[in-house]
Design a protein around this nucleic acid. Structure first.
Lengths: 148, 148
DNA sequence: CTTCATGTAACTTGATATGTTACAATATCG
DNA sequence: CGATATTGTAACATATCAAGTTACATGAAG
């Protein structure tokens, strides 16, 4: 089963936007997200509705981050993308008649919801600001290398 | 993204097998797994290779559980099915050049692996025996109702 | 030796995420 | 004002991949 890399791709785009003080066009973003401009607009639409980014038409238009970087967590972005399922695994029948299958579902669902809750907690703990800081911390030493 | 219900379906089948003292045919199992016999054989093949079930051809043939119910955990079954990914979410590029994307990947992968580890721990903690016991505990009171 | 079963390869189908085209709407620039 | 740059979005096309299906070989039991 193929994994959904949209969250990852969008975060990549957002961090690049955070490093610019101008708007970035869908075409620019499509390059760093390795897709095409229409898909970028489709994906960013959710973030716009949630108020995390703004978009402007026309000359000099494009996408900008609209809130403080430390006010957005990965969970916020995940939700804004449309809360796709976290787990590939699921139960075969949601509300089975069969008592045997009900026992299976009880066991599986317990494990599923714990794992999902943990993941979303971790997402909620990380802000875009932290990602930017992490990136900068690693990028700077590399620049020193070049200078020296 | 559609969820993979094979683990759930196979557990259902195994518990029914556990309640019988005869072999069950792929056709019988296909009914309780809500699919067709060939898919059952395909799915059970992994369990057979792992030694959890045996299959017999010919008259009176079919599938039987081959080990003690308290010697198999959900994790064992999950593994025997071919360890499909646990999470729907993944990173967009596995080993990116871009430092920004590397920072994104570090954050995501940490959260992913914690959640996955937790789920597999929980799976490892539950044996087929426990599921059977849970089922029986709930099934018996229902019979008393009928009698009284 | 017929029937009932599994084993498995090959092919078909269906669901769906992604990509693409097309064009309307709108903002900026000169 | 007209040319150009940009988003917004619907509609369509493509690719992928799991599941379903067909077909037939193999083997066991009556």
């Amino acid at each position: 089963m193929k994994r959904d890399g949209r969250l990852s791709a969008v975060l990549h785009a957002l961090l690049h936007m955070a490093e610019q003080d101008r708007a970035m066009t869908s075409t620019e973003l499509s390059m760093c997200m390795d897709t095409n401009p229409v898909v970028v607009r489709r994906t960013m639409a959710g973030l716009r509705e949630a108020g995390f980014v703004t978009s402007d038409k026309g000359h000099g238009g494009g996408w900008r981050i609209a809130v403080d970087l430390d006010a957005i967590s990965l969970k916020d972005i995940y939700d804004a993308l449309g809360a796709s399922p976290v787990l590939s695994l699921g139960v075969h029948v949601e509300h089975p008649q069969c008592l045997v299958e009900q026992a299976v579902n009880r066991a599986l669902k317990g494990a599923f919801s714990e794992a999902e809750a943990l993941l979303l907690e971790r997402f909620a703990d990380v802000t875009l600001k932290q990602l930017v800081d992490d990136y900068r911390k690693r990028a700077k030493p590399a620049r020193h290398e070049k200078r020296s």
